[in-house]
Simulated assay, not measured.
Amino acid sequence: MSTSHTSEAKFFDLHTTGIGYLNRIREVKPRGKGKPFMAVAIAALHGSTDEVEYSYIDCNVVGTDAEKLIRRCQEAVDAGKKVLAGFRIGDIWADAFTYEKGDKKGLPGASLKGRLLFISWIKVDGETVYEAKPKDSVDPDNSDRDSARNSPISDVPLHQSA
């Protein structure tokens, strides 16, 4: 919980961490008012490793670093590669809807939604292509220019060219 002794708003955080496959990376342009935003569907893994189960979570990408990483993953996802990532999602909620087409037309449905806040690592087809640096690894002697050049987003290419 974040609190303050001033008149700032108080709130509770609900964070979910796990690993899952990235799917349906897209830029969403809201109808009417609102800024476009990145979205991704995550097939989160849970259960026994012998009988893995998936929960699908549709996420708005809200972290700046997360957005850069998701954009870099889009080509691999679109090419059908298996992109697995460690993630932190905030404020998961269920969204009720009615199917508009297909065999389930007219039936009620529900989907999980959330806000993708952080990506801790990414593997493309089993090869690690990104790992977040621990917060403690920042060298206080580096200038801002050096820190930007050595940021974890630019350290490792997302996937190798064939």
Rank of each mutant, 00 (worst) to 15 (best):
A44N: 09
T98C: 04
K82E: 14
G86T: 13
M38G: 07
K81D: 10
E75Q: 11
A39W: 11
S48A: 04
I57G: 11
V52A: 10
A85V: 15
G63M: 08
D58W: 11
A41H: 07
K81C: 09
R88C: 15
I92K: 02
C73W: 04
I70K: 01
A79P: 03
S55G: 10
Y56E: 09
M38A: 06
Y99P: 11
G34E: 06
F87S: 01
N60L: 08
R88Q: 08
F97N: 08
D95R: 15
D91N: 15
S48D: 13
K68F: 09
A94R: 12
H46G: 09
R72V: 05
Y56I: 13
R71L: 11
F37C: 06
E53W: 06
H46S: 08
V28I: 09
N60T: 12
K29P: 00
I92V: 14
Y99L: 01
A76L: 02
K33N: 14
A66D: 08
R72K: 15
G90H: 03
K81T: 03
S55T: 12
E27K: 15
A41C: 10
G47R: 02
A41F: 03
T49V: 10
R72Y: 00
W93K: 14
D65T: 01
E27F: 02
S48L: 10
T98L: 00
I42T: 03
V61T: 05
K68S: 03
G86Y: 04
D91F: 12
A79L: 01
V52P: 07
N60D: 10
Y54K: 08
A85T: 13
C73T: 06
A39Y: 07
E53Q: 14
K35I: 00
V62A: 00
L84M: 09
Y54Q: 10
D58E: 11
V83I: 02
W93A: 13
G47I: 06
I57H: 05
E53P: 00
G86N: 02
G47L: 03
K82V: 07
G47N: 02
D91E: 14
K29M: 05
K68M: 13
N60R: 14
D91W: 11
